[in-house]
Design a protein around this nucleic acid. Sequence first.
DNA 1: GTCAAATAATACGGCGCCGAAACGAACGGT
DNA 2: ACCGTTCGTTTCGGCGCCGTATTATTTGAC
Lengths: 115, 115
Amino acid sequence: MSVELRAFQSLKLWHDVHLDLVHHGGDLSSRQIAILLTIYLEPPPHTVRGLARKLRVTKPVITRALDTMGKLDLVARRRDEADRRNVVIQRTVAGALAVERLGDVITAHAKELPR
Amino acid sequence: MSVELRAFQSLKLWHDVHLDLVHHGGDLSSRQIAILLTIYLEPPPHTVRGLARKLRVTKPVITRALDTMGKLDLVARRRDEADRRNVVIQRTVAGALAVERLGDVITAHAKELPR
DNA sequence: GTCAAATAATACGGCGCCGAAACGAACGGT
DNA sequence: ACCGTTCGTTTCGGCGCCGTATTATTTGAC
């Protein structure tokens, strides 16, 4: 029963945060969220190939997500001068702020949950 | 600093669960997730109008989401016989299982987080 | 210098969701 | 019986993401 309760709390958190995102958030797909958070939570450098491997998706998925998030100024691309085939994905100020804000939203809703 | 740490943990949870969803989950949009969880977490009855109000989206959004999730057998529709203008949204066995499974995924990842 | 391998980007056809507007069915007051 | 209101659905043009296949650039081995 306590297990069920915990699952319910988790689901309520999921529900509340998604509700928040629907209203105030630029809506990114699950894939885009996973990519964005990988970039901001795991140590750089990040490449298209590396992200594709880590998330087990094809490279065009990464390229397109970077296009979209780049337009939103959430990430930036830079050619790797050491090996010009590679593209290094860089964080941006706006992106860092957006991720930070997301973290705040999650923790705020988590705090409201009964323990 | 402890605040930052908690935000980081929240973001890691968000990242990990989304990663899981990308691989094993039927991919629903943020709106669809919010709708689905509202139906399964809040007490019935649910109507198109009520869901639209609660999520602050237009009614066609609800109709289309119900179409999609209905095809996936996550929810079902029933005409309200008392007032035949209304449509009552019903839960399904498959939907309950899917929601339960999502709860399990979230709690499992949450458990792995350092406190 | 040449060629195979690796990397990222692009082209293509398809599918799903969007917002706004129009629509049809059902209700309720008079 | 009418008529305004409510409810859910449908239509329309548009946009974004998908997977697969192809392209362009760069590298490194020989």
